[in-house]
Design a protein around this nucleic acid. Structure first.
Lengths: 147, 147
DNA sequence: ATTCTTGCAAATCATTTGCACTTTA
DNA sequence: TAAAGTGCAAATGATTTGCAAGAAT
């Protein structure tokens, strides 16, 4: 379920892909829809597990292929937030990530004006993207610990 | 070779470990020295490959064990900067990282007053660490491209 | 029709684990 | 000497690769 609770029309998703020069397929549309509908920063495997029942014949290879392609086209960003596995997120430069070291969940944190990070980049370096990554305890886990 | 070009005495390294409640061993001292002498954000395997010739009998398992222990004690930080493998760095909250997407090298960037990131963290969340991660092109690669 | 995508299985590669042996405090 | 560390080899788990069959333009 996405933020607005509406199910996006496949034709809209197809258009998104076309605009990025990505050939469409039922699988790619399903994966894109999944990313839009879930704020869960999923791994390739999570996507596969969730989609497989409703997407007959979907293979994990295709999930990997599609995500890699989406990332190359700038549609999604690859979060390397956890040592072990790669996580994915719809590309959106206006937020960073907070990872709770207690429950392991990853939360978005708003980081509006990215340009303010420019000053940290030494001259000579050409920055393409900025990402703020914070580690700590989320509200739920803070509560549990204090009770 | 470290920044000052001096070879640190083993007794000093041993003291560092002891202060952190880490039992010492020849391997741990070698790994710590390596981290101090190299600003290369190495992976466990790079450390192993570089140290193996001069550290008879060193095993990759020990490199992993030591790094995990150092990280738990706050001596090093685990950089999850690349999808594939974990990278390590002497802990130092006063810098972020810049990864050149052309040559793959990782550079430190000074990010002095961390507290300035606090404002991005929504209330209720308890932040332990902040890390700014920038992606782009390093000066060397900028030069090569324009020539 | 031609080119790109898919999916299976096998291959890789980083990291972890089990366990007997060695070292440290 | 008790407790912790080490190293080998095997196990695990995520991701990639080769390749034949299927789908899109």
């Amino acid at each position: 379920m996405n933020k607005t609770g509406q199910r996006l029309k496949s034709t809209d998703l197809i258009e998104v892909l076309r605009e990025l020069g990505i050939k469409t397929s039922a699988q790619r549309v399903a994966i894109l829809r999944y990313l839009i509908d879930n704020d869960s920063h999923p791994s390739a495997d999570m996507i596969y597990q969730d989609l497989a029942p409703s997407t007959p014949g979907l293979s994990k290879t295709t999930v990997y292929n599609s995500l890699k392609l989406f990332a190359a086209r700038g549609l999604v960003s690859e979060l390397t937030i956890d040592g072990r596995e790669q996580r994915y997120d719809l590309a959106d430069p206006t937020h960073g990530h907070f990872r709770c070291t207690t429950c392991g969940n990853v939360f978005d944190i708003p980081v509006h004006p990215e340009p303010r990070f420019q000053k940290f980049v030494p001259s000579g370096y050409q920055a393409d993207s900025y990402h703020l990554y914070v580690t700590g305890t989320c509200p739920d886990c803070v509560r549990k610990k204090s009770s």
